[in-house]
Design a protein around this nucleic acid. Structure first.
Lengths: 119, 119
DNA sequence: AGTCGTTATATTTCTTCAAACATAACGCTT
DNA sequence: AAGCGTTATGTTTGAAGAAATATAACGACT
């Protein structure tokens, strides 16, 4: 493979994984990152701004995930101390872990295939 | 994982792989399919119409691949018998095979992870 | 009561990307 | 010489998605 590629350019193998439902995506690398930030920051809006994402988009992603889960992955509160907030439920945390581990196995796969193809 | 998902919906794990250069994508599932059709049909335009893709887009993909390869993967001829045509060079055919095999290994990976996650 | 930061949601604007359209050149075939 | 199907390329149009803007509700805190 490597002998087919232009010698002046550098190439890399890349990829994405996601879980899709009948209508919407359910989980992917972006949603995973969003969940992680909500968990860490306790707020959808702060997670959104840390991802350079509009609050609206972040909220829509959370809504989509919650609707497709058996029980909410993120629970929210309007008003109150600090104006409200959001937290990742135990179910959400479990999903977070499992999908993170899947991502790690995928990275291993990518590394092995990269070695096979490009080195 | 399965116990986290809404019981009325069906989910599946999916993914994509590609090889990227510094500026453009070099190879992906769409480009692979295009190469295969050009090889089979001997024409960019016929390959494009079989993929429901505009000729222009197909041509741009071919051009991008050729520019990033050491030697052309598709060679073309304007005019002549049948008005011209295109063929996949030996280098292109080698790429075709290798990337197809990579895709097959990826499908195996996906199947294994699906069993792990969703069954 | 008023302020604050957040969730929640609708509407509008912008941008980006794909599709559509148009045109020329090429070389065999008739 | 004229026609055909193809490659090759520029220009215009359209559609989808993202971003921006706006507004309301909520509940603690001052």
């Amino acid at each position: 493979m490597k002998d087919l590629l232009h010698p002046d350019l550098t190439f890399r193998l890349n990829g994405r994984l996601w879980i899709e439902g009948p209508t919407d995506r359910f989980m992917g690398i972006g949603r995973l990152e969003l969940l992680e930030k909500i968990h860490r920051l306790g707020s959808i809006s702060r997670a959104a701004q840390e991802m350079q994402m509009s609050y609206k988009r972040a909220w829509e992603l959370v809504s989509s995930m919650n609707q497709q889960a058996r029980q909410p992955l993120v629970s929210t509160q309007t008003g109150g101390k600090r104006g409200g907030g959001a937290l990742v439920t135990p179910e959400g945390q479990q999903l977070l872990h499992e999908f993170e581990e899947l991502q790690a196995r995928f990275q291993t796969f990518l590394a092995a295939e990269t070695a096979r193809l490009l080195e």
